[in-house]
Design a protein around this nucleic acid. Structure first.
Length: 574
RNA sequence: GCGCGAGUAGUCUAGUGGUAGGACAACGGCUUUCCAAGCCGUUAGCCCGGGUUCGAAUCCCGGCUCGCGCACCA
């Protein structure tokens, strides 16, 4: 049934992920469907931990906010963003011979007309010019043939909509509201964590190419001339593996990479550093992580410069984060198509005073002379910026007008300019949460030998584990089980993801929790009833310390956050 | 989408035309005083649909899924 996990070196990891409830194929009982996965109880917990860590890094500790917009978008959005043309082809199918053509190519070939790639436009062209198939047959209704999932909104034929192929557009189209929210002050960031959809032709490789997937995207809006970040110093000395667009490797600090022009600017470097920091914290291994620059022919239609974070897995190097300088592409596009002014007024540090020459037309003289053309001439005069001679020759709509010097006045004025309108540029770190979750699982999967027995252990970072604590009665009977229940309730109340398990021998249960990555097991033993203590066992070392039962919440908090190590919180028991 | 290979309990696997067997896991019991012990018992399977045949896990066709290669990956 789950051929999903077979083959390759991922076999052991994949088998465990399905069996223990991390991930599995969607729609299994109906035969499955490629490109969709379900997150089981543990996988869902891990991904949620990843999302929370991401928020901490990219929202809470930046000048940034999180929003949530619909996963369905109307067609206009994607026409403006470019997805409709670069992501969608309109196809026509012949009723008679069944051939399918890409409509814009076909129309251009037959009629020489450049076609907008919308169904309405194509339908109109086909009707107007009575376009027929090469075989003489009539075409069916034009259809979208695309990598966006298509849907209709409303009853009947409805309005064309698409499932979003990225969360980013929901942010760009809200730019005015968001800019207001930030009181028109750059830089600011807006993020969205959510689902996106691409109707992949041939999804493969489990969770690596999905048709429905999870993204965390930050759109960080900046002044085009100020691609810096006040906290860049945090990462200036950060050493990192870069592969540039010429496939040259650099083991280099980010500061140096900017100085040498390998990374275009500090802001991009800042987010590369922060992304690396985040990925390591989440459990990606340093020696299996690198940043690769997109080659010139690889960049998306919107990107000015782009770096991918890649993780090495059993599938090879896979892209897990894209960090792109999208320039003003998106805002300019939406500005053009929506006719809304998506710019910000930026005040200069001090108003710039400049002398301005102004031409003031004298309408009492222009009027009689040019009559009905007087208004046009006056407007042209006001805009005129060339040399002033005795006679100015203006060309308006292909017609020439001669204007004598005495028909206007010239004044020199001082003008204070307080600032300028700017379309911000946007730097976009875009995270593929499914791929990162998977890479973490592969990087965490390990085997070692305990007392001569091989065990499988998932070395998740403590703060990422979906089950943080397992409470285990040494024996599966009272009073051990009752005490374990009491402690479990207490820990759950304190906010820890806790499970109680009294099934099977103690050793078997330790192995169970090792395999799913639970960092700490608490054991209730005989001594617990003498002095109200329990033991805490560390997943990675299998060492145990004995601590006071009542101190557990505080101790577990410091252990799980990484503030303290096991040997610092109690007396070594084993 | 094309080509090649594959699909048997939760997982791994045996089974080349005569009604599916094992291991591990899970569950119940006995046992068990800290790292996958043992014993007894239980649950649970031929990817889906069609065809050939007296009879199909097995042969044929189609679909779905998985793996590999090609194409695609804005």
């Amino acid at each position: 049934m789950s051929g999903y996990v077979k083959g390759g070196t991922m076999k052991d990891v994949g088998e465990m992920l399905v069996r223990r409830g991390y991930l599995w194929q969607s729609f299994e009982i109906y035969g499955g469907m490629a490109g969709f996965v379900d997150y089981g109880p543990l996988g869902n917990g891990l991904r949620r931990a990843l999302e929370n860590l991401w928020r901490e890094y990219f929202v809470v500790n930046e000048r940034a906010v999180e929003i949530d917009t619909p996963t369905i978008g109307i067609e206009d959005v994607f026409i403006a963003s470019g997805h409709a043309s670069s992501f969608t082809d309109v196809a026509v199918e012949c009723k008679k011979c069944g051939k399918i053509f890409r409509a814009d190519h076909y129309i251009k070939e037959k009629l020489g007309i450049e076609t907008e790639e919308t169904i309405d436009f194509v339908r109109e062209v086909i009707t107007t010019y009575d376009v027929k198939c090469e075989c003489g047959g009539n075409f069916k209704e034009p259809e979208n043939f695309n990598l966006m999932f298509s849907t209709t909104i409303g009853p009947g034929r409805g309005k064309q909509g698409y499932l979003r192929p990225e969360t980013a557009q929901g942010i760009f189209i809200n730019f005015k509201r968001l800019s207001d929210y930030f009181r028109d002050k750059l830089p600011f960031g807006v993020c969205q964590i959510g689902r996106a959809y691409r109707n992949e032709i041939s999804p493969r490789q489990g969770v690596i190419r999905l048709r429905e997937f999870n993204q965390a995207e930050l759109e960080y809006f900046v002044h085009p001339g100020e691609k810096k970040h006040p906290l860049f110093d945090n990462y200036r000395e950060f050493r990192i593996l870069l592969v540039d667009k010429n496939d040259e490797e650099h083991d280099i600090t980010l500061g140096e990479a900017v100085e040498r022009g390998i990374i275009a600017h500090e802001l991009l470097a800042y987010f590369i550093g922060k992304t690396a920091d985040f990925l390591l914290k989440a459990g990606i291994k340093k020696d299996k992580m690198r940043f690769r620059q997109h080659k010139d022919d690889e960049r998306a239609h919107y990107a000015v410069d782009c770096w991918d974070a890649e993780a090495y897995t059993s599938y090879g190097w896979i892209e897990i984060v894209g960090i792109a300088d999208r320039g003003d592409y998106d805002l300019s596009k939406h500005r053009e198509y929506s006719k809304e002014d998506l710019s910000i007024f930026i005040n200069y540090d001090e108003p710039v005073v400049r002398k301005v020459r102004k031409i003031l037309p004298d309408m009492s003289k222009l009027g009689p002379k040019f009559r009905k053309n007087a208004k046009k001439v006056a407007e042209a005069l006001e805009k005129y910026s060339g040399e002033i001679d005795d006679v100015l020759t203006l060309e308006i709509d292909g017609e020439k007008f001669e204007v004598d010097r005495d028909l206007f006045e010239i004044v020199e004025e001082e003008e204070k300019v307080y600032g300028e309108r700017v379309v911000p540029h946007v730097i976009e770190p875009s995270f593929g949460l499914d791929r990162i979750t998977y890479a973490i699982l592969e990087h965490s999967f390990d085997r070692d030998v305990i007392d001569g027995e091989e065990r499988r252990v998932l070395r998740l970072k403590r703060w990422m584990a979906p089950v943080q604590i397992a409470v285990l009665p040494l024996l599966s009977r009272e009073p051990f089980t009752g005490k374990a229940e009491e402690i479990t309730v207490m820990l759950k109340k304190s906010g820890f993801f806790t499970e109680k398990d009294e099934s099977g021998s103690i050793g078997r249960r330790y192995r169970r929790y090792d395999e799913i990555g639970t960092p700490f097991c608490i054991t209730v033993d005989h001594q617990s009833f003498e002095d109200s203590t329990v033991t805490i066992r560390d997943r990675d070392t299998t060492r145990q310390v004995r601590v006071k039962e009542l101190e557990l919440p505080e101790i577990m908090k410091s252990l799980l956050s990484g503030e303290r190590e096991l040997t610092e919180v109690g007396e070594l028991f084993k």
